[in-house]
Design a binder for these strands. Structure first.
Length: 252
DNA sequence: GCGACAG
DNA sequence: ATCTTGTCGC
């Protein structure tokens, strides 16, 4: 899978904001022509110690609830975390992992917001536009918008409204009864209803949609194998404590 | 000046 | 997100 637009190597703050304002005009917020059958869940883990991003993509066939493909990418981290400019931090890793996909999924599910963003250009909007692929954002916390009341049952939905215009920017979606909702917003080539529908179709037994949840697991596994943390010092020895011998009696 | 602030 | 120690519940 190849991007249709290039992302610059080095980006400063003002340039990042300018890129967002230029690209957001190109977003298409209509639903995909046909309902997605395969989606790629995406996630990134960080090593603070080595300034490295560990990205994973899990391609998922919705109808069969089955993994089709898993890819990884490891890239250096070259942009700070700034709320509102989050995509510039993770996009190099996500582009790298998507370029490794053999298949072209019908849609992407990102770990972050789409247009529920102060400039209407969150990670899912940015990434969807770079590849011109349908993309939805699923975030665990709010960045932008006013939350309307949401019922407690799985499948219930409430709007997330722009603070200035009261126009919808996304939705709160209850993916599990009695569990905190997720924040769903279209990124590119999605509208609100199709985005919510896709997230619910990908929802399994957990709060996060299954493709993203599995991508997260992959990311954690990558971090653990490539950047294992070892204790700074070995735990001290305890001279008075005697290890139980295998097969020894419990006491004398 | 104060609070809010995706990952 | 990462770091870090413990606690609660199936």
């Amino acid at each position: 899978m190849q991007p249709v637009r290039r992302h610059p190597w080095r980006v400063g703050y003002e340039q990042a904001v300018a890129i967002q304002q230029r690209l957001r005009a190109q977003l298409r917020l209509e639903p995909p022509a046909r309902p997605p059958e395969t989606v790629a869940g995406l996630d990134v883990a960080y090593s603070r110690r080595t300034h490295t991003l560990y990205a994973a993509a899990v391609v998922w066939r919705i109808a069969e609830a089955r993994v089709l493909e898993v890819r990884h990418a490891i890239v250096p981290c070259r942009f700070p975390y700034i709320p509102g400019l989050f995509s510039f931090r993770e996009i190099p890793a996500l582009v790298a992992v998507l370029e490794r996909l053999a298949s072209r999924p019908d849609a992407l599910v990102c770990d972050g917001h789409g247009i529920a963003h102060p400039r209407r250009f969150g990670l899912a909007a940015h990434l969807g536009l770079l590849f011109d692929v349908p993309c939805v954002g699923v975030a665990k916390k709010r960045l932008w918008g006013i939350e309307l009341a949401l019922g407690p049952e799985r499948g219930e939905v409430a709007p997330l409204l722009d603070p200035h215009t009261a126009a919808p920017v996304g939705a709160l979606v209850r993916t599990r009864s009695g569990v905190k909702p997720v924040f769903v917003s279209p990124g590119h080539r999605f509208d609100f209803d199709a985005a919510v529908e896709l997230v619910l179709r990908c929802a399994g037994r957990f709060r996060l949609p299954e493709p993203t949840r599995r991508a997260h697991q992959e990311t954690v596994r990558l971090l653990r194998t490539h950047d294992p943390k070892r204790p700074a010092v070995r735990e001290r020895r305890y001279p008075d404590y005697v290890e139980r011998q295998p097969g020894a009696a419990a006491n004398a």
